[in-house]
């Protein structure tokens, strides 16, 4: 192991990260740091590069055919490419919402295959409790579950993401399509997880309201550029760029004209 063993929050540093896929710029010279145990929200409109950024931090982007990645991602001051892929997957958890197994237990325990863990059952129960699902699924752990229940699916996949207690948790617009209650439940689950295990959190969201709730630091991305980075409350009150201003106020006509004017 190059990185500290779990459970331990890991610091993250992104320096001049540029990504091109199929000749198109997805990210342009992105730089930011999150201290160990810190939290940042990545906000921006659709196609602003939020997902590409999370995929780059998790190392998945290096495996995408035709993707050119420049710049550095460092976990605990170690360059990502110097860390074995298996270790990155274990220590940097990217929340994927797709179901991969038929029963709640199999879903959550999936990443534990091959892990040297004495009591898998206890770990599954622990993370299901953390995401607030234990009482719901404890009697149906080994029965097929309904993937058409979006809140259940999001929380189960969240439990799956954290079952190996990653040091960094990456969330990619994880509550899209959920109603108010589902969104609140998911946000509560994440708050519970990071307060229990002190994970470093990177939460991408297209909703400014959510950015304000989940992290005191935010970055605003637009067309692959990081337009602003700083305390969420300050940016919400006094954005330093007209593109941020337009996004936050919902002034899409001005945002469009600003983006077209810049030939982005």
């Amino acid at each position: 192991m190059i990185l500290p063993e779990p459970p331990k929050a890991l610091s993250l540093s992104v320096t001049d990260l540029s990504v091109q896929i199929g000749g198109k710029h997805q990210l342009k010279e992105i730089s930011f740091q999150v201290p160990s145990g810190g939290a940042i929200s990545i906000t921006g409109p659709v196609n602003s590069g939020k997902s590409a950024l999370l995929w780059a931090i998790n190392g998945l982007l290096y495996e995408v055919p035709g993707a050119k990645v420049k710049g550095k991602v460092q976990i605990e001051h170690v360059e990502l490419q110097q860390i074995p892929v298996g270790e990155v997957r274990q220590r940097v958890g990217l929340h994927i919402t797709a179901p991969l197994a038929r029963t709640p237990f199999a879903e959550v325990a999936l990443p534990l295959q091959g892990a040297h863990l004495a009591d898998i059952g206890a770990r599954v129960e622990h993370v299901l409790r953390l995401v607030g699902l234990w009482s719901t699924v404890r009697n149906q752990l080994h029965q097929p579950y309904s993937v058409s229940n979006p809140v259940l699916l999001r929380l189960l996949t969240l439990a799956r993401t954290i079952v190996r207690l990653p040091g960094i948790l990456l969330l990619d617009d994880p509550t899209r399509g959920l109603d108010n209650m589902g969104r609140a439940r998911f946000e509560d689950a994440v708050a519970n997880i990071i307060s229990t295990h002190k994970m470093t959190l990177v939460w991408a969201t297209r909703e400014p309201d959510q950015a304000g709730r989940v992290a005191e630091t935010m970055a605003f991305l637009c067309n692959g550029e990081m337009i602003e980075l700083g305390p969420t409350a300050s940016i919400f009150e006094r954005p330093g760029d007209p593109r941020t201003e337009s996004f936050l106020t919902g002034d899409y006509l001005t945002l469009q004209s600003l983006l077209n004017g810049n030939n982005l």
């Binding site: 201003e245 337009s246 106020t249 919902g250 002034d251 899409y252 006509l253 001005t254």
Partner: peptide
């Protein structure tokens, strides 16, 4: 004032 969701 923006032309956004609070303009009117």
């Amino acid at each position: 004032m923006s032309h956004g969701r609070c303009a009117t």
